[in-house]
C-alpha cells in the first residue's frame, strides 16, 4: 500500500474545495450558535435555497449566473425570516427541532412533483455554472510535490477560501463591536439582555439572516463547483457535518470553523483513502470491511467525533478552558 498516496489525498481533502465550502457554511453556523446561541439544526436548508437560487435562475429561467447568486442570497434571507419569525421567540431546543423540520420540509417540496418543472424534482439540475468557469484565470494544473490540483479545482478553491477569509473577517469585525456584545449577551441569557433594553428578537433575527446568507453562499458555491444540484444531497447529514466541524474547531472562535474544516476533511479523507488503499492492497481483508461499509463508517466517525468532543472537549481545539468551566447550560 502506498502511504504517500494516502497522505497526499488527505492533504488535498484538507485544503480542497469541499473543505472550503464546509468551512464557509460553518462560519455562518458559528455566527448562529457560537456567538448567538441559536440551535440551528437546519443549516442545510440555507445551503439548499442558495444552491437552487443559482441553479434555477440559470437553468430554468435563463438568467445570468450572477443574478442567480443574488437570487440565492435573497432566498436565504427569505428563508431566515420564514424560519425565524415563528421560532425565535421559542426556547432554544424548540428552535432546533423547528429548523431541522423546516429544512426537511423544504427538501420534500423541492423534490416534489409540484416543484419539478422549476427544480427538476428528484433529478435536480445540471450544467449551469459555465459563466463561473469561463472566468477561471488558471490555465494549467498545479503540482505541489505529490499534490495535484486541476485548474478548475484551483479556481473553486481560490474563490472558496477567499470567501471564507472575507466572511471570517466580517464576523470578526461584527463580533468585536457593541453589536457583537449584545449577540453574546443574548447567547448567555436572553432575559438579562431583554431586561437591559435590548430587542433580543431583532438581534437573533439579524444573526439568523446573516449566518443564513453565509450558508446560502456556501450552498451556491457547492452548486457552482459541482455544476449540479439535487435535493437529496441537502439532507440533514450535511448539517451534522457542519456541527462536527464547528465544535471540532471551537464554537465562538473566529478561526474555529476554518481549522475545524481543515482537520475534519484531513481526517475524513485520510481514513477514507487509508481504508480503500488497505482493502485494495489486501492489508485489511474484504471480509472485515467492504466497499459500501467505508462510506457508512465515515458517518460512524462523524457521530463519534461529535459525541466524544462534546463529552471531553466541548470548547473544541481553539476553545478557552476558562470559558469551558463556565458553560453551565
Amino acid at each position: 500500500m502506498n502511504f504517500m498516496d494516502v497522505l497526499s489525498n488527505a492533504l488535498r481533502g484538507a485544503f480542497g474545495a469541499e473543505a472550503a465550502i464546509y468551512a464557509l457554511a460553518a462560519v455562518g453556523l458559528n455566527l448562529h450558535f457560537g456567538f448567538t446561541g441559536l440551535l440551528n439544526f437546519g443549516h442545510v436548508g440555507f445551503m439548499l435555497v442558495g444552491a437552487y437560487g443559482v441553479a434555477v435562475s440559470v437553468s430554468t429561467w435563463g438568467l445570468s449566473l450572477w443574478v442567480g447568486l443574488l437570487i440565492g442570497i435573497g432566498c436565504s434571507i427569505v428563508l431566515a425570516l420564514i424560519l425565524g419569525i415563528p421560532t425565535l421567540r421559542l426556547r432554544g431546543d424548540y428552535l432546533a427541532i423547528a429548523t431541522i423540520a423546516g429544512a426537511e420540509v423544504l427538501r420534500y417540496f423541492y423534490r416534489s412533483d409540484w416543484a419539478a418543472p422549476i427544480t427538476g424534482g428528484v433529478y435536480g439540475l445540471r450544467q449551469f455554472a459555465n459563466e463561473f468557469f469561463a472566468l477561471n484565470p488558471y490555465s494549467s494544473n498545479l503540482e505541489l510535490g505529490p499534490l495535484l490540483f486541476s485548474a478548475r479545482n484551483l479556481w473553486v478553491m481560490t474563490v472558496g477560501w477567499s470567501l471564507v477569509v472575507l466572511t471570517s473577517l466580517l464576523v470578526y469585525l461584527l463580533v468585536h463591536s457593541p453589536w457583537g456584545r449584545v449577540l453574546r449577551a443574548v447567547r448567555e441569557d436572553e432575559l438579562a439582555a431583554r431586561s437591559l433594553g435590548k430587542n433580543v428578537y431583532a438581534y437573533k433575527m439579524q444573526s439568523l439572516v446573516l449566518g443564513g446568507v453565509i450558508g446560502g453562499l456556501a450552498g451556491a458555491l457547492i452548486a457552482i463547483a459541482t455544476q449540479s444540484v439535487n435535493p437529496d444531497n441537502f439532507n440533514p447529514a450535511v448539517t451534522f457535518y457542519l456541527w462536527a466541524i464547528m465544535i471540532l474547531g471551537g464554537a465562538s472562535r473566529i478561526l474555529g470553523p476554518i481549522l475545524g474544516s481543515i482537520i475534519f476533511w484531513f481526517l475524513a479523507t485520510f481514513l477514507d483513502s487509508f481504508l480503500r488503499n488497505a482493502t485494495a492492497s489486501g492489508l485489511i481483508s474484504p471480509d472485515v470491511i467492504s466497499g459500501p461499509d467505508v462510506g457508512a463508517l465515515r458517518f460512524v466517525f462523524v457521530g463519534l467525533c461529535l459525541l466524544l468532543l462534546m463529552i471531553y472537549r466541548p470548547a473544541g481545539i481553539l476553545g478557552d478552558p476558562k470559558e469551558l468551566r463556565l458553560d453551565v447550560r
Binding site: P178, W179, A193, G197
Partner: peptide, 18 residues
C-alpha cells in the same frame, strides 16, 4: 457596558465600521 442604551455600534450595519 451592555447596559448602556442608544449605542450606535449596536446596529448591525454600523457594527463593522469601528
Amino acid at each position: 457596558m451592555l447596559g448602556a442604551t442608544e449605542q450606535r455600534g449596536e446596529r448591525m450595519l454600523a457594527a463593522p465600521l469601528r
